[in-house]
Nucleic acid binder design. Sequence first.
DNA 1: CATGAATGAGGATTCATTCAT
DNA 2: CATGAATGAATCCTCATTCAT
Lengths: 190, 190, 190, 190
Amino acid sequence: MRRKDDNKLTNIFDATLELVTSKGLSETSVSKIAKKANISSSTIYVYFESKEDLLIKLYVKLKKNMSKSIFDSIENSSEFKESFKILLNNFINYIIENPDIFLFIEQFNNSPLYNKIPQEYYDDLYQLHDSFYQKGKEQNLLKDVSIYLLTVYTYYPVVQLIKTYFSGEVELTDSNIESVLQMSWDAIKV
Amino acid sequence: MRRKDDNKLTNIFDATLELVTSKGLSETSVSKIAKKANISSSTIYVYFESKEDLLIKLYVKLKKNMSKSIFDSIENSSEFKESFKILLNNFINYIIENPDIFLFIEQFNNSPLYNKIPQEYYDDLYQLHDSFYQKGKEQNLLKDVSIYLLTVYTYYPVVQLIKTYFSGEVELTDSNIESVLQMSWDAIKV
Amino acid sequence: MRRKDDNKLTNIFDATLELVTSKGLSETSVSKIAKKANISSSTIYVYFESKEDLLIKLYVKLKKNMSKSIFDSIENSSEFKESFKILLNNFINYIIENPDIFLFIEQFNNSPLYNKIPQEYYDDLYQLHDSFYQKGKEQNLLKDVSIYLLTVYTYYPVVQLIKTYFSGEVELTDSNIESVLQMSWDAIKV
Amino acid sequence: MRRKDDNKLTNIFDATLELVTSKGLSETSVSKIAKKANISSSTIYVYFESKEDLLIKLYVKLKKNMSKSIFDSIENSSEFKESFKILLNNFINYIIENPDIFLFIEQFNNSPLYNKIPQEYYDDLYQLHDSFYQKGKEQNLLKDVSIYLLTVYTYYPVVQLIKTYFSGEVELTDSNIESVLQMSWDAIKV
DNA sequence: CATGAATGAGGATTCATTCAT
DNA sequence: CATGAATGAATCCTCATTCAT
């Protein structure tokens, strides 16, 4: 791959992330992305089939990176409960340190785009999570419900809390975080 | 003067609800609403100051109705845990029986409009919930966390589950629902 | 005439004058006038055939009043040159004391409306001026040019000066005014 | 990329000029301009930032051309009074030969747009005039008033006369013109 | 690979006016 | 006399995308 092209792609992604975060998904147009990336809007169509394609690819890339980063320090040998709390803590920290990425993902999740992600990307998105919870179930530590339900109680309350935190309506104290970790665990544990 | 057509307002609300549900909030334009309601788009501005005003008023109306309906059968005398499960069950049933309303509210919650709701509507939106959880806290049945956090663990996982159910990716069995009621209670109870 | 109706008409005129002055002629809509006058916009059509009709009638009324006021203190017996300077001075003072009226008239003069004034109003607008200059010509004090040309050199430079003064780009000192009186007189005198 | 069609810009300017002249500034919409220029209205936004931008650029271009043309034959060596009369005569001739340009400029001057001209254009608009009158003042031929006042008495009466001529209410004879030249000179000379 | 030019479709909103009461 | 309701036409402008170079 040539260096120059690499930069252009990166610029497009960066500009998109910045715009969606600052102006919102619906205010992010191709021409605004192009202007921020210092390229012609038609150049975007050299790299992506459509605006939708661009947004989906950015989403998948960001979520994949996030998953890898969060699961990175989880060791197979540790106790599951411990791992769970570390995982959720990693998630919280990642979000707080990368608010742009979080806000982009959230906007995407709640847009019609979410249902247009091609199946081929599913593994990238869910595999790490699935196998983690599978392990917990095999050890009979988790309620006998679908993995999906377990992830729902793990992530969504946290996501909501932090969204509210970002909008300034709630504080995010250590005690808050500790509560959340406990509440999520209480929800899913046997 | 011409007599006001009571149906017209209803038609506008209905058309809006239908469009947001089927096409999405960002694809819902004033002219599409007007066309579906069989009126001129300028007529909408007789009833509402702006598109934003229309959407907010519809949201508040729907959410108020939903709250009333959900809390209707909750009796003060019952045991709190029992009331909680009935409440959550009512919520689930209401959503399932009124998918349009649910989908509209969800889209609205996750749009920039949510932060533009005038304060004067806050009571309509939050009062019933707040006083319910307050009662549970006074009986020392709930974790010592903010009411906000309690509602987050009550509603958001359910909301997420049902959204996934509507998108066809998950089934919604009685056992599923029973699990959810239990998980939410486990999350918030002392 | 009923008192109440009188007020309504006055309110419409006042609101129109205020709006044209503050927002400009093109930003003055019937509905804005109605709102400012605290009436329904359809009520305006009880008093006037159209927006155009309203504006023209207001214009004629204002200009007639101005003419009367300016010529009021001119005495037939005085020397013409003296009368001329008093007249021009009256004009300047009237404008400065009634900037709204002046700005309205100027906007009207420079709009397509000006050419739509029905002939029947011409007398109201020009008669006093015409007969004044006629007198000067009869005394052989003025250049042998059309009365129209005389009025042009009398009023328009003054109008321009004061418009620029209102826009803040120029000061309006006594010496300035004295210069203008002299320059206008030099232009038209034999 | 497609090659830029030089004619397109010209077409837009021509269409705008024609419309403002025939229908008036306030009746000149972007879509009408586009239709007359045989392009899509969105194409106009390829060449100009906004309607305002288009009108200002056209105005500056026309006025610059006019200034150049009028001052073209003025020689530094001639007597000032002679130059002045030639200049004013050139102005009159230019206007009569280019009524569209004159009417456009007049409408623009009397619209809110006039106050929105960016400072960077000021030199293009005023420099030639300013330095001309400066010369006259240095020779002590002109009244001791601001240059602004001198230009007011030079141009505005002429402008007014010709506007009335165009509207058909007055004739424009050689003797008329000769009178105007004299009256303007009498107004500004010492 | 890269891009400036070009566009039809559509966006929210305001307009002057008419209508029925 | 007075008016609230209703509207079709029009406003400026942005959109995602395509085209020819």
